[in-house]
């Protein structure tokens, strides 16, 4: 699952992530594509605080970074 959070400013990308993490199975991944510069540290911090796993980063065709998160529980 990919969430498009382009143009959404801090803290909206992690809110989008929180709203949709339950939409994927435990063990599956969800990617939030966000161009806000605060998204990188905030997604990592959200994963730490909510005990999910930050798997890595992708780059969309338009260059927007995508943060790949695995649902752990």
């Amino acid at each position: 699952m990919i969430i498009d959070a382009r143009g959404r400013r801090c803290p909206l990308p992690i809110l989008d992530l929180a709203r949709h993490i339950g939409d994927v199975e435990i063990g599956a991944t969800i990617t939030v594509e966000a161009d806000d510069p605060a998204a990188r540290p905030d997604v990592a911090a959200w994963c730490r605080m909510r005990r999910h796993e930050l798997v890595g980063e992708t780059t969309a065709l338009d260059g927007t970074p995508g943060y790949v998160v695995r649902r752990r529980h």
Binding site: C10, P11, I14, A38, R40, P41, D42, A44, A45, W46, M49
Partner: peptide
């Protein structure tokens, strides 16, 4: 905050 990897929001 970014260098520490801390929550910025």
């Amino acid at each position: 905050l970014v260098a520490m990897g801390a929550l910025t929001s």
